[in-house]
């Protein structure tokens, strides 16, 4: 198992404690394409942040590729974020004063890769994603779909084994949403990247091979969806 969660608890404490994750058990294998669904405030983002080592958890055990992720040194955590995991955000989170190619090569900068190699790798990747012409543009000169593809390129540049995406289509229209999900699906099929997508939209969730429902901080139903026409996600079920 690439990812193994056992009894994960997470409580936010801003004034009054808020118990968000109440014992999550979840296993995700190498090469899976999983979507996580649930109502707003159910703790999807919290779970994804824990998976991405962006945040820590209070109780339980998280094993990533056999290593226990708990009380890591900042260096180790940074290294996992940099090399093993790629993160894609709903609001793209590109650095506004950097061009597309500069944004994409930033993870390699923190890896200590030389300047020319960084640039080369970033350009290749942008080219592959059909963004070569946009390399020198700043984020505010690009459409949402382009920005999200740049963000995906940034997540991919270090060849991570896992891509975590928190509502990657949340800010996109349906057409660009399809493009982005196709891209993720293609990465999953061709490069065997493990992909975990948090989403509200059933259409988006339907792209995954496995749909995990989260409810009140616990894992509910886990649906296998290899045929990509999960019954629960017909039009009547869109929130």
């Amino acid at each position: 198992m690439l990812i193994e969660l056992k009894g994960i608890h997470k409580t936010y404490d801003n004034g009054q404690p808020l118990h968000v994750l109440k014992g999550i058990d979840l296993s995700i294998d190498n090469g899976e394409f999983v979507s996580i669904m649930g109502s707003s405030g159910s703790g999807k983002s919290t779970l994804l942040n824990i998976l991405g080592i962006l945040d820590n958890y209070d109780e339980g055990e998280y094993h990533l590729d056999g290593h226990l992720i708990k009380g890591l040194k900042e260096r180790e955590a940074a290294d996992y974020r940099n090399r093993t995991i790629g993160f894609v955000f709903q609001s793209f989170n590109l650095i506004p004063f950097k061009t597309a190619v500069e944004n994409v090569e930033l993870p390699l900068f923190y890896q200590g890769v030389s300047r020319t190699k960084r640039r080369e790798a970033a350009m290749q990747l942008l080219d592959k994603l059909g963004l070569a012409n946009w390399a020198k543009h700043y984020p505010n000169e690009m459409s949402g779909g382009q920005k999200q593809r740049v963000a995906i390129a940034r997540a991919l540049i270090t060849h991570p084994r896992i891509i975590l995406a928190d509502e990657p289509t949340g800010a996109l229209d349906s057409k660009t949403s399809v493009e982005v999900m196709d891209l993720l699906g293609q990465l999953n099929r061709e490069e065997k990247v493990t992909i975990i997508v948090v989403t509200h939209e059933s259409g988006v969730a339907n792209c995954a091979n496995k749909i995990v429902h989260i409810k009140d901080g616990l894992i509910g139903e886990i649906e296998l969806n290899s045929q990509h026409h999960a019954s629960t996600f017909d039009k009547n079920n869109i929130k």
Partner: peptide, 8 residues
């Protein structure tokens, strides 16, 4: 963002 993509 920098921290999320691997800055220590």
């Amino acid at each position: 963002i920098r921290r999320a993509i691997g800055a220590t």
